[in-house]
């Protein structure tokens, strides 16, 4: 595959420079903190804090989900690398308003180790920290081993709900409970048709034979369920839904869901909409009602081609937090 031309400066400075640019995009609502964090300005005293984070290069997540009724801050790592513990600590100290901090991030080994160390450092500073790991990728491990599952696009729905809840509740325990419920009610599956590249080297992040698609493949090219010949959107939609509905989240007649069709980078909005068109009647057939649809490229891996489908099963409480307006660079929503 030909190397995709990139309009950048120093290839080794991408993570730092994109963070500067992101902060600028907040036009004063957020600031850079320490070596590699972005934190909202004017966080009220006594607010329960929500901190997200992860490696850079997947923009707009995670740092672009910092916002009003969204995450209070994000700890950002280098390209595709978890943020080190000192950055996590700096971000934690900057978002803490005396009511504790929830760490919410994707379940990857590097992230878990570094955020855990950050939490230990924060605990030395008398800041209470709780963690909820995002593990929505049903293709990455069977349901009885959820703790081995990776976090993918469903994180956007979970962070949105957690961010709203963090603005409304008055204890860390309550935020943990709601966030866990949102996480436990979310399932995603992706399909990859071409790799993204490492900005510093231009090398592809994985190999995939031309004309093939990795069903269930992770956002860094982690092995999925199967590799097949690329098919049409109408043929793919039932396969993806089958993987999600075949999992242990009970979904049927009368259930209401959020549906998120996400591009992994270079897959176009046109393709996402065609996939959405294919998904809707299949859900309707099963009596599953889509309460809200999100279409966008929010969880990406550079110019990786492919898409993912995420489903979050709603109840009245989750719906209440979903309905709150939110504003961030990565995802915004008006009051419903």
């Amino acid at each position: 595959m030909n190397k995709t031309p990139k309009i950048i400066n120093d290839p080794n400075a991408c993570a730092a420079e994109l963070l500067d640019g992101l902060v600028e995009a907040y036009d004063g609502a957020a600031r850079k903190v320490g070596k590699g964090s972005i934190v909202m300005n004017d966080l009220p005293e006594g607010k329960v804090a929500l901190l997200v984070g992860g490696g850079s290069g997947h923009e707009p997540i995670y740092h672009g989900l910092v916002g009003r009724n969204m995450a209070d801050g994000a700890a950002c790592g280098d390209i595709f690398a978890a943020p080190p513990p000192d950055i996590v600590l700096e971000a934690t100290q900057a978002v803490d308003r005396g009511k504790g901090v929830l760490y919410l991030y994707g379940n990857y080994a590097g992230d878990v180790m570094n955020f855990d160390m950050g939490a230990e450092l924060a605990s030395d500073e008398d800041i209470e920290v709780q963690t909820v790991l995002i593990w929505d990728d049903v293709a990455s491990a069977p349901p009885e081993r959820k703790e081995d599952r990776r976090g993918i696009a469903g994180l956007v729905l979970i962070v949105k709900i957690a961010g709203a809840a963090a603005a409304a509740v008055d204890s860390l325990e309550e935020l943990v409970r709601i966030t866990r419920k949102a996480r436990d009610n979310t399932r995603s599956v992706g399909v990859a048709v071409a790799a993204g590249s490492i900005p510093a080297t231009g090398a592809p992040t994985f190999e995939l034979e031309e004309g093939k698609m990795g069903v269930g493949m992770g956002i860094h090219g982690e092995k999925g369920v199967r590799v097949d010949t690329i098919c049409t959107a109408d043929e793919l939609a039932p396969q993806l839904l089958e993987i999600i509905l075949g999992d242990d989240l009970e979904l049927g007649e009368g259930d209401e869901i959020l549906l998120f069709v996400n591009s992994l980078g270079s897959t176009t909005q046109m393709e996402l909409l065609i996939m959405n068109r294919a998904l809707k009647p299949l859900l309707a057939e099963k009596g599953i009602k889509v309460y809200d649809t999100v279409i966008g490229d929010i969880v990406t891996c550079q110019e990786m081609a492919g898409l993912s489908v995420s489903v979050l099963k709603l109840d009245d409480e989750l719906k209440k937090y979903w309905n709150m307006p939110c504003q961030s660079v990565g995802y915004s929503k008006m009051e419903s």
């Binding site: 280098d78 950055i87 570094n114």
Partner: peptide, 14 residues
């Protein structure tokens, strides 16, 4: 190492 690398390798070698 920990602070400059991040990721799993930074955590482990740090």
């Amino acid at each position: 190492m920990m602070s400059s690398m991040g990721g799993a390798s930074g955590a482990i070698f740090g």
